[in-house]
Design a protein around this nucleic acid. Structure first.
Length: 428
RNA sequence: GGAGAGAUGGCUGAGCUGGUCUAAGGCGCACGACUGGAAAUCGUGUAACGUAGAAAUACGUUCUGGGGUUCGAAUCCCCAUCUCUCCGCCA
């Protein structure tokens, strides 16, 4: 979501950005929206003149009525009525133009950061940095469902009967580990100065459309039947929505929040062979972090945010890397984004466990999140979000990296207090 | 779920028998005066968004949101949302 002024004044910049994202089909939209905008402003100008005239005449009708000059008032009413038709037509035109402009503006991608690598799809994403040694042990690592089952920690059969594919029962120590990871991650972020928050798990359509594109919404969100409510796909939705229509004082920034929520996703689309078990599921839990800040600070916060996730995983002895999203793979609302990926010693590759995004002012423009500066000027805030940790997918990385040759799973020191002091989980 | 009352600029709060509402009054905030400095006091100014303009400014839109009646809506009508009170239900 760009500002129409930017498109009007810098069409070449907007077009170059579209090309960088390999969305050439959208190029004609730029000229089209500029034309619509010019027509719209002309219509507004004419309509405003008519409205001014109507207001002036209406006022004098009031005055005439007060003086008891009914005949003159009636005559004046007729004058206003003669203009009413043209005004009505103009107002209808204004409405359709606004709708058309908004529709196009919603599809134009945000201007990406200069540092974003150019590439057409996820195959061209770029590894930035590795943290920790990606170890491949000399014994075989089983599929994560087998590790969990060996510890009596997973019951997919029952889940299928009760809710279907994409759901799970976590049992015993695995369920406890799940809660431990969430609690540990919560405290980890609180220690870094973030404010803990439990948000609504359902949100209105108006908030959904503010935080994501229609295509994403259709592919992800579960709707509550008969109500204007959707189950959240991530607490980012309700956390950014918290600031909808707000004008924040500059001194209240930055807002740094960490939130817990269950997440619900339809996950429309094919499920690959490596996505069995608890990798791609309709329901999971997540500790999230979001930041609302001044525009000049968002790049700095972006770096801080993804580092938090890296540090968290490293504190549980899980090797990770950061993978920068290339231009073509970057969602339209985003300025820049990196995925944090955890090492899978079984697959001998990294897989996504978190995603850190700088949205610039795109969400803020849609949701009207503004800042009132010291000198009274108003501007849009920048918004960012990042995963702290999202089990049960994260447990896959945890189990594979902490599995011992004898089938037991080591519990790192940092997690032990959250596991009642246990140092390992052992199959019976 | 049932019944009733409400929603007005940053906050509080009047207006709600339709027409100087260009939204009173108060609080807060900003600037100025007074002061050695401050408090108190006094004065002035204090919403957002859009269009035009270099700017001053002008015009338009907005009184929870959407629709309607009217020459004209904060005010009347309809729908939605939210809040409060009472009843019911419930962890």
């Amino acid at each position: 979501m760009l500002e129409i002024k930017l498109v009007r004044e810098n069409p070449e910049l907007v077009k170059a950005n579209i090309k960088k994202k390999f969305q050439d089909a959208k190029l004609p939209l730029v000229d089209e929206v500029i034309r619509l905008d010019a027509e719209h402003r002309a219509a507004v100008g004419e309509a405003d003149t008519l409205r001014a005239e109507r207001n002036r005449l209406s006022k004098s009708i009031g005055a005439l009525m007060g003086q008891g000059k009914k005949a003159e008032a009636e005559e004046m009413k007729q004058t206003v009525n003669r203009q009413a038709e043209r005004l009505k037509a103009l107002e209808a035109l204004e409405a359709t133009q606004e709708e058309q402009i908004k529709k196009i503006m919603m599809t134009l991608p945000n201007i990406i950061d200069d540092s974003v690598p150019i590439g057409k799809d996820d195959s061209e994403n770029v590894e930035v940095q590795r943290f920790g040694e990606p170890v491949v042990p000399d014994f075989e690592i089983p599929y994560h469902t087998e590790i969990m089952e060996s510890l009596h920690g997973l019951d997919l059969d029952s889940a299928r009967r009760v809710a279907g594919n994409g759901f799970y029962y976590l049992m015993g120590d695995i369920a406890r580990l799940h809660s431990a990871v969430i609690s540990y991650a919560r405290d980890f972020m609180i220690d870094r100065g973030f404010t803990y928050c439990v948000p609504p798990f359902m949100i209105r359509a108006s908030v959904v459309t503010g935080v994501m594109s229609f295509a994403e919404m259709d592919a992800m969100m579960y709707k509550i039947e008969g109500e204007d409510l959707y189950l959240i796909g991530t607490s980012e939705h309700s956390m950014i929505g918290k600031f909808i229509d707000q004008i924040l004082e500059e001194k209240e920034l930055p807002q740094t929040l960490t939130s817990y929520s269950p997440c619900f996703r339809k996950e429309k689309g094919a499920h690959g062979v490596e996505e069995r078990g608890v990798y791609r599921i309709h329901q999971f839990e997540k500790q999230e972090m979001i930041v609302v800040c001044k525009p000049q600070d968002s790049a700095m916060w972006f770096d801080k945010l993804w580092k938090n996730t890296v540090d968290l995983f490293r504190s549980m002895d899980i090797p990770v890397r950061t993978l920068e999203c290339c231009s073509g793979d970057l969602a339209d609302l985003k300025v820049k984004s990196v995925d944090v990926e955890a090492w899978s010693p079984r697959q001998k590759k990294y897989f996504e466990v978190g995603s850190c995004s700088n949205l610039g002012d795109a969400q803020a423009r849609r949701l009207k999140i503004r800042v009132s500066g010291e000198d009274g000027t108003k501007y849009l805030a920048h918004t960012l979000n990042n995963t702290v940790v999202a089990p049960p997918r994260m447990l896959i990385a945890f189990l594979e990296n902490n599995l011992q040759a004898d089938g037991s799973v080591r519990i790192p020191k940092t997690l032990q207090p959250y596991m009642g002091g246990k140092t390992e989980m052992r199959p019976e």
